[in-house]
Design a protein around this nucleic acid. Sequence first.
DNA 1: ATGGTCGGTGGCCGA
Length: 274
Amino acid sequence: MRIATWNVNSARARAERIGDWLDRSDIDVVAIQETKARDDQFPASVFTDRGYEVAHHGLSQWNGVAIASRVGLDDVRIGFPGQPGYGDPEEREARAIAATCAGVQVWSLYVPNGREVDHPHYAYKLRWLEALREAGVARLAEDPEAQIAYVGDFNIAPQDDDVWDMAAFEGLTHITEPERSAFQALIDAGFDEVVREHTPGPGVYTYWDYKGLAFPKRRGMRIDFVLASPALRARVTGASIDREERKGKGASDHAPVIVALDGADDRPVDRQKK
DNA sequence: ATGGTCGGTGGCCGA
């Protein structure tokens, strides 16, 4: 089984590219972030026309998350227990959706950006991550064998090598100690990050800004991850970052990130169709 | 080449 996560930066603007990517990528489950659509605007047919079930959660032109699966899509959940809102703690943004696909609970997560270190959005980001950790701890306490994948755009570069130039990020979000601690706390809670060991850096990224020819200049960031509970972590056989998808006109600023699990239809990641 | 990012929106904001 192959699970992917991809911040598409608008499902509508990216619909044709998403379809083309599905056609060539042999993906069983894909978690999508930043659909930038309400449910009534989401182009579900991109997925259903190709034999995927899809669940989408979008409240406005901001955020928006989805999961598509061709191996079953059960027990869809909107938001995680304790997920805070921005400003009004009761008003949750469309940043988390989950579904159980072939026995794996996949969470498509769009972690708040943080904007600036002294901005309220930054404190919100840290609150949001801590609440996610608490929800994960509670779930694993209930069922230590649960196969849970926390996947998506974490908007954190956990290591210095995860940005093209640390000096360029002085004073900015994504690389601060509290953000990195919040990410590490998820790992310490039992959700190991499984992509890096199969895609070692430096210079390996999942996001490149649209501005300033960042992609051709190889100025990127590694901010999209797959975190796996212990039972799921034991099944991971490989991972890859589809850097090709960042190329050309009409690309998202994020590349898809793919993880392979053991299973009857598994095949080596380095033999995947391009 | 006197510009040099997108997307959604509505006449700017968010990333």
